[in-house]
Amino acid sequence: MIGYGRQSISQADRDAVLTVLDSDYLTQGPKNVEFEELVSAYCGAKQAISACNATAALHMAYAALNVEVGDLVWTSPITFVATANAARFLGADIDFVDIDPLTWNLSVERLEEKLRVARKKGRLPKLVVPVHFTGQSCDMERISQLAKEYGFSVVEDAAHAIGGRYHDMPVGSCRYSDITVFSFHPVKVITTGEGGMALTNNPVLAERMRLFVTHGVTRDSTLMQLPADGPWSYEMLSLGWNYRLTDMQAALGISQMTRLDDFVTRRHEIAGRYDQAFADMGLGTPYRAEWQYSAFHLYCIRWPEGLGGLSRLQAFEALRARGIGVNVHYIPVHLQPYYRQFGFAPGDFPQAESYYKEAITLPLHPSLTEAEITHIIQSIGEVAQAV
Rank of each mutant, 00 (worst) to 15 (best):
S183C: 06
P125A: 05
I143V: 14
R110C: 10
G164D: 04
D95C: 07
R142I: 02
F96C: 06
K188S: 13
T180C: 13
S144G: 13
F152Y: 08
W104D: 12
Q136T: 11
V181P: 00
D95G: 07
I143N: 05
A159Q: 07
M169H: 09
H160D: 11
E112H: 08
D139A: 15
M140E: 15
E109A: 14
A118F: 06
H132T: 10
F184H: 05
V131T: 11
R119P: 00
M169A: 10
A161C: 01
T103V: 01
K114I: 01
S177D: 03
A147K: 03
H132P: 01
G122V: 05
K188G: 02
A158K: 01
V171G: 08
T180D: 03
L127C: 08
V117Q: 15
V181S: 04
V171W: 02
P130Y: 05
E156K: 06
K188H: 13
Y176R: 00
K126H: 10
R116C: 12
I179G: 04
V155M: 12
S153D: 09
P170T: 07
K114V: 03
H185N: 12
I94Y: 00
R142D: 12
P186C: 01
T180W: 01
K120C: 11
G135R: 03
P101V: 05
V97Q: 05
Y176G: 00
G163M: 01
A118C: 07
S183V: 05
K120L: 15
D178R: 02
D157G: 01
W104T: 13
C174A: 09
S183R: 07
I179Q: 02
G172E: 03
V171M: 13
E113Q: 14
K114D: 15
L124H: 05
A147W: 01
L124T: 05
K121D: 15
S137N: 08
R175A: 14
C174V: 02
Q136H: 11
H132Q: 10
G172Q: 04
A158N: 04
L115Q: 08
D178T: 02
V129C: 15
K121F: 09
F133C: 10
G163C: 01
Q136C: 06
T134C: 10
L106A: 00
K148T: 07
D139P: 06
S183I: 06
P101Q: 10
L146G: 00
K126L: 09
R165E: 14
Y176H: 06
R110K: 12
Q136D: 11
P186V: 02
P125K: 07
V154R: 06
